[in-house]
Write a protein that binds this DNA or RNA. Structure first.
Lengths: 147, 147
DNA sequence: GTGATTTCGGACTATTTTGTCTGCAATTTA
DNA sequence: TAAATTGCAGACAAAATAGTCCGAAATCAC
């Protein structure tokens, strides 16, 4: 799996919050229910996003979480970086320590190209774009089988 | 991490075996030492490659393992598929069950493009190419820090 | 102030991945 | 035939990830 489960949950939740187009807070509980994610687990994941400043939380009745800045200013990259770190954007495909331009592994060139594509993709993709897509056509966002 | 450790070990070992340009068998022990991988763990990984027909083993003094077919006919894809399976080539970025053309997730289009690039890259990259690169300039292949 | 709701923080359990160990099966060599 | 070398198979241990639970801390509504 390229992203950890925690990270995919975080992205899903972020998109969901952004897609509401409201400034009001949403409770983590309701997000977890909508997306079919374990509430307690999601709580911990979202804490990483608030600590990174991507979300703000309000610990109060009818409080919850909300985006820390405009959805158009939150990149997919920043969400991934806050949860999984930046390893996937820098790591050697073969996991070799010290692989780089100076001492490349055999797969280095191919992989560097892939990584930079992923890097720029994640940088230019914002929550605003993803949320808009989620709203158009009721795009799929929850961890539910299709039955 | 996009590939599991087991998978990176398997690829490294496969490249190493291919880079020897010999038909003779190599003991897993010596491969493990060269690449600085745990011998027993590598043994289990390579069993998956022999079961997939990518390698052949010879259980005998001075025996070991060897490629099951010409290095030019073993793709990076087949090695990855034998160890990690094909999930990374088909999975939704957000891990959503049932995400596809019919019911896409918001990141679907972007990700499908990345995946297909990865797919074709892994299909066109053969052990022969990687081994050749490894031989040119003594390219990096072992799990050793650079000191 | 009291009670309700909500996130925060840490401890805990479960599952998966990674790594280790031991004995066995196969086959050559002497 | 006996001994040595090698991969195979399964049991086991350790570490990382995923998921659960509970007691706070914060703040609003009354």
């Amino acid at each position: 799996m390229v992203l950890s489960k925690a990270c995919t949950y975080g992205i899903q939740a972020a998109i969901y919050v952004a897609s509401r187009n409201e400034d009001a807070y949403v409770s983590i509980q309701s997000v977890a229910e909508k997306l079919n994610i374990s509430f307690h687990f999601l709580t911990k994941v979202l804490q990483q996003l608030t600590q990174a400043g991507l979300m703000v939380s309000y610990r109060v009745p009818n409080g919850g979480i909300s985006l820390g800045k405009p959805a158009s200013q939150i990149t997919l990259y920043s969400v991934i970086a806050a949860i999984d770190g930046t390893d996937i954007f820098t790591e050697c495909m073969l996991g070799l320590p010290g692989c780089g331009t100076a001492t490349p592994c055999p797969a280095h060139d191919h992989w560097t190209e892939m990584r930079s594509k992923l890097f720029s993709l994640c940088h230019k993709t914002t929550l605003a774009e993803l949320a808009e897509k989620a709203n158009q056509l009721n795009l799929r966002l929850a961890n539910l089988p299709l039955v």
